[in-house]
Design a protein around this nucleic acid. Structure first.
Lengths: 222, 222
DNA sequence: TGAAGGATACTCCATTTGGATAGTTTTACA
DNA sequence: TGTAAAACTATCCAAATGGAGTATCCTTCA
């Protein structure tokens, strides 16, 4: 059975390129094209359940109703339809919003025709949504650090007026090295390492390794 | 420059297969092999920073110390090293745990040699971790169902199987208190505090306060 | 030119820590 | 109710740590 595909993109040229890529493969047929999210939702309303596309290739930035909104609406109304983002945008926020809206795949437009068709066939056979490798890695990072997006915690590296050497020692200290290990790593005497450590503790107004490391971690010194 | 790869798998035959796959490509060299997580952590300790592998291909189910624990420990201790899971397991929980532990990629063993080498080259060039397509889709679903991720989020804190008492001690240790101070704070003997600390170090597979605190901070244990 | 601060190196000393070993009590669970 | 796990206590020893003091060499800057 042929896979019915709908294409939603505001650029006629983009739609034509995708249609051509799929047209060379007789496992696909383009059910319809839409120029934006609103157009897509209206066309879906006119279809009977048996005419729904299996897959919708959806651009993101479009007039009237954008891709994320269209996916959020349509994935609820038509749960049997798979929504795959096909766009040039690869920033974290768009990826995140599209997935949360209900996209089951995310492809970049620079993927080759064969990669796209292969992944769509696989979607049909195994249910696994198609995802471009670079997008997959960004999604992995979202799982890795859920509250990451508030990046850019200002490194106040110099409020304690540590010298370069002292910052270097502090870094090595945080890696769990002992005086003698640090010494041999940067070619100075363990005694000197200790002297640096004591200076660091004084500048940080702490007494001991653990407290110094606490400040280092929480203030972003390392 | 060649990419140094370490291979961690308890089956000698698996290690040989991977070594062979990489051996045909002169962009790679196998830095060392290890038979389990414990073996891997011990071998890493003996290396100088310049000898660290760029990438570690890690199986998950292994005796002594499993892959997730090894990644959790080593990704804190050696932040410059990339950890890629290479396994036959594709169940959600293993994937989730490995990613949260610090894996930057997840490959299935049935990937061809070329796919693996291509993705490792790409990791080197773009920093994007290699992810098998079917795994990528499962990760996407994790983002889609945040409550699932959230309920398992607490497990992150327990991948090292610290007891409540040990977590309490670790918390106090991070505040820079000494054994006797911790003891009087929670009304136990300093000797007991020390015993707990040593147990913590064993469970975290580290030797010393600084390394334990590093893992505690970077893995969100405190 | 001379003061100030950084980096280096050393000594002496008391304290803290890591590691091993060997127990007892308490708690949890099957 | 028995057993396993966790929590607690204790002691010994070698190593690492922190604290203080002293000293030389170098660069920077007023």
């Amino acid at each position: 059975m042929m896979i019915r595909v709908a294409i939603v993109d505001d650029k006629p040229n983009n739609r034509r390129v995708i249609t051509d890529k799929l047209g060379r493969d007789d496992r696909f047929m383009v059910a319809f094209e839409a120029r934006d999210g609103e157009d897509f939702l209206l066309r879906m309303k006119d279809l009977a359940g048996t005419e729904y596309p299996h897959v919708v290739l959806m651009d993101l930035e479009m007039p009237h109703v954008d891709g994320v909104t269209a996916i959020a609406t349509a994935s609820s109304l038509y749960p049997s339809v798979s929504f795959v983002v096909l766009t040039i945008f690869d920033d974290d926020e768009k990826i995140f919003k599209a997935i949360r809206a209900g996209a089951c795949g995310y492809l970049l437009k620079d993927e080759s025709g064969k990669v796209i068709t292969d992944m769509l066939i696989n979607l049909r056979e195994s249910g696994a949504g198609p995802i471009s490798p670079s997008i997959a890695y960004k999604i992995l990072q979202m799982v890795q650090q859920p509250e990451l997006v508030k990046s850019e915690k200002e490194k106040q590296e110099n409020i304690f007026l540590l010298s370069d050497r002292e910052k270097e020692i502090l870094q090595l200290l945080s890696e769990g090295l002992e005086y003698k290990e640090i010494g041999s790593r940067i070619f100075i005497s363990p005694n000197t390492v200790k002297k640096h450590c004591i200076s660091i503790y004084q500048k940080l107004h702490v007494s001991g390794k653990a407290q110094a490391l606490r400040i280092a971690y929480t203030k972003g010194l390392i």
